[in-house]
Amino acid sequence: MECPVCRESMIVIEYDDIELDYCVGCMGVWFDAGEIELMLGKSGIPFPSEALRFRVADTDARELRRPCPLCGKTMQKVCPEHGRVILDRCPAGEGIWFDAGEIREVIKESAGAAGDIVLGALRRYLGEALAEK
């Protein structure tokens, strides 16, 4: 699978029976549909979680539009329901793309205790990828 940003072949990382794709060039991460839910479910977080609701971004002119690495359709710019980080989501529902550091920003933005639990779950899977640089 190709990175939607730098077009390099992505590495598949498997941890605790969950597989994610990431690009070594830009450290962006691709979550296939259902993988975030699977990850949170394994950590005992019921879905739908507050932190995982998205709305179409107000302004999408600033960021370049990217193709979905699975189906090639141009991805939608979306934001978490109560946040401002702009992510790319496949219009056909194949998955979501996080640029480097965006996962951390999403978690930072998500308010209150729900965010902390999600952070805990993601930290377990992504470890250092979430650490402040």
Binding site: M1, M10, I13, Y15, E19
Partner: peptide, 12 residues
């Protein structure tokens, strides 16, 4: 603990 799966066309 993770397993990295490298595609055949990986250039780095």
């Amino acid at each position: 603990g993770a397993a990295l799966k490298v595609p055949p066309d990986y250039r780095r």
